[in-house]
C-alpha cells in the first residue's frame, strides 16, 4: 500500500510538471480560479487569525484549501496546481511560515480520521518541500473530523470537509 501510494505521489509530482513545461503559463492561471472558488464557498467559517500586519498582504490563494477524495491523502491535480502557486509565493516571501491543517469528513471514525488528517497535511508539506521550500518553514497539524467547515450531512459538505487548510504567519 505504502509503496503504491509513494508511486502515485511520485507520478503525480512528475506528470503535471511535464505538462506545465510544454503547455503555456496561461493554462495555469486559467486553472487557478475554479480552485479558488471551490475553496471560497465553504468559508463562512471564521478566517484564520490575521498575522500582525506584514509588509505585504498575504494573497488569498495562500489560504485557499486543497481537497481530497474519501479516505485518501493523495493530492489531486487541482491541489497540486494550487500548491505550486503557494510554493512560488513562499519562495518569494522568505519570512513567511506555513501551517497546514489536515481535515476529514464526518463519515469515518474519529481515531482513524485523526491519522488520515495528518497524512493529508503531510502530503501537502512533502509536495512543497519537494518544490524547494524549507521543511522548517512548514508545520502540520491534524484536526481529524473535529473541525468541519460545513456542518451539513451530505456529499456537498463532506467534499468540502476533506481538505488541507493553510495558515500563514510571519
Amino acid at each position: 500500500m505504502q509503496k503504491k501510494l509513494w508511486m502515485v505521489v511520485a507520478l503525480l509530482l512528475v506528470m503535471p510538471g511535464l505538462l506545465f513545461m510544454v503547455s503555456c503559463q496561461k493554462k495555469v492561471a486559467a486553472q487557478a480560479p475554479p480552485v479558488a472558488k471551490a475553496a471560497e464557498a465553504p468559508k463562512p467559517a471564521p478566517a484564520p487569525a490575521p498575522a500582525p500586519a506584514p509588509m505585504m498582504a498575504t494573497p488569498a490563494f495562500m489560504t485557499d484549501r486543497v481537497f481530497f477524495d474519501f479516505d485518501k491523502s493523495a493530492l489531486k491535480m487541482e491541489a497540486q496546481a494550487l500548491l505550486k502557486k503557494k510554493a512560488e509565493w513562499l519562495k518569494s516571501t522568505a519570512n513567511a511560515k506555513l501551517t497546514i491543517e489536515g481535515n476529514c469528513d464526518e463519515r469515518g471514525t474519529a481515531e482513524y480520521n485523526m491519522a488520515l488528517g495528518e497524512r493529508r497535511a503531510q502530503s501537502a508539506k512533502k509536495f512543497l518541500v519537494d518544490l524547494g521550500i524549507d521543511a522548517k518553514r512548514i508545520t502540520t497539524i491534524s484536526y481529524g473530523k473535529e473541525r468541519p467547515i460545513d456542518p451539513a450531512h451530505n456529499e456537498a459538505a463532506w467534499s468540502k470537509n476533506r481538505n488541507d487548510g493553510f495558515v500563514v504567519s510571519y
Binding site: 505504502q2 469515518g108 481515531e111 482513524y112 497524512r119
Partner: peptide, 28 residues
Amino acid sequence: SNRGSNVSPSWSPDGSKLAFVSDRSGSP
C-alpha cells in the same frame, strides 16, 4: 511494524495480544 496508519490499539484481557487498525491493505 508497518508504514502507514496504525491506530486504535485494544489489548486482549491477558495482555498477550493487541487489536489495532491499519490501512496497509488500502483501507482501514
